[in-house]
C-alpha cells in the first residue's frame, strides 16, 4: 500500500490546486481573468472551507497540526525551525513592501455601471418622466428597426462595434472600453427609458451622486432626433435578442 500523503500536505495541495484551477480555467482557458481583489476574497473563503473540512474531527485536526507542532516543539528540528522563524518575518516584510511600493499604473477607479437615473429629466427641450417612459409598440416595426440600424451604423458602431459587442474600431482608444450590448448584464437589465436617458444625455448627464464615473458617451440629443434615438433602441434590443426590463407583465409593450 502506498504511503498516504500527510494531512497538512493534503490541505496545502488542495488550496494550491484550487488556486491553480481558478488561474487555469479563467486566465488561460477562458481568457477572462478573475480580478485580483475578488480572487483574494475567493481564496480566503476557500482556505476557510478547507480548514473546516480538515478539522471537523479530532483525529484529522491532530494529524493536521502535528507537523507544525513538531516544528515548534521537537528539539531535533532546530535547524529547520530557525530557518522558518527567520524567513517568516522576511516574507511578511516582502509582502508589505510589494504592496506599498508605488506603481506606474493608475490607481483603481470604481465606476457605477448603472447609476440610479433621475425620476424625470429634460431632454430635447421637453420633460420626460423616466419612471413611465416607454415607447408604444410601433406598427411598422421591421422598418423602424432597419432605420435604427442605419442610425447605429452611422453613429454608434465606431465605438460599440458592428456586432454590438463593444469592440468597434475606436474602442481600443477608450478607457473604459465601450459597453457590449450582447452581454446579459447590460441592456437586458435595463428599461428602454434608461437607455433613452443615457443616449440622450451621455456622459455629462450622469448624476453626481453616482460618482465616480467615467463615460465618453457623447450627448446625442444634440446630434440625433428623439425619433432616431427610439429607433436605435429598438435596433439594439432586436439585434441582440434581449428584452428590456419590465416592472410588470401587463406593461409588456415590446412583444413583437
Amino acid at each position: 500500500m502506498a504511503r498516504r500523503i500527510p494531512r497538512l500536505a493534503q490541505a496545502v495541495l488542495t488550496i494550491v490546486g484550487i488556486y491553480g484551477a481558478f488561474r487555469l480555467v479563467f486566465d488561460v482557458l477562458l481568457g477572462q481573468p478573475i480580478p485580483s481583489s475578488l480572487l483574494t476574497m475567493y481564496m480566503f473563503f476557500v482556505v476557510a472551507g478547507v480548514y473546516m473540512v480538515f478539522t471537523f474531527t479530532e483525529e484529522s485536526t491532530r494529524e493536521l497540526v502535528a507537523p507544525i507542532r513538531a516544528l515548534v516543539e521537537d528539539p531535533r528540528r532546530k535547524p529547520i525551525r530557525n530557518v522558518v522563524f527567520a524567513l517568516t518575518p522576511l516574507l511578511a516584510a516582502w509582502f508589505t513592501y510589494a504592496g506599498l511600493q508605488p506603481r506606474i499604473e493608475a490607481p483603481v477607479e470604481l465606476r457605477s455601471i448603472h447609476p440610479a437615473p433621475p425620476s424625470s429629466v429634460k431632454m430635447f427641450g421637453k420633460r420626460f418622466d423616466l419612471l413611465k417612459l416607454e415607447k408604444e409598440e410601433p406598427k411598422k416595426f421591421r422598418q423602424l428597426v432597419a432605420e435604427g440600424a442605419k442610425v447605429y451604423v452611422e453613429n454608434c458602431h465606431f465605438c460599440h462595434g458592428d456586432k454590438l459587442d463593444g469592440r468597434g474600431p475606436y474602442a481600443e482608444g477608450l478607457n473604459p472600453v465601450p459597453m457590449s450590448f450582447q452581454d446579459v448584464g447590460t441592456i437586458a437589465q435595463l428599461q428602454e427609458s434608461f437607455l433613452f436617458w443615457r443616449i440622450a444625455t451621455g456622459g455629462p448627464g450622469l448624476p453626481a451622486d453616482a460618482a465616480p464615473w467615467i463615460s465618453s458617451m457623447p450627448v446625442w440629443e444634440t446630434f440625433l432626433s428623439e425619433e432616431e434615438i427610439w429607433k436605435v433602441i429598438l435596433f439594439l434590443y432586436d439585434y441582440t435578442g434581449h428584452r428590456p426590463r419590465l416592472w410588470s407583465e401587463n406593461a409588456d409593450h415590446s412583444k413583437h
Binding site: 477572462q32 478573475i34 475578488l38 465606476r111 463593444g166 473604459p176 465601450p178 457590449s180
Partner: peptide, 9 residues
C-alpha cells in the same frame, strides 16, 4: 476588454 466579465458578470 471592458468592465464586464463574461463569466463573473
Amino acid at each position: 476588454g471592458g468592465p464586464y466579465h463574461k463569466i463573473l458578470g
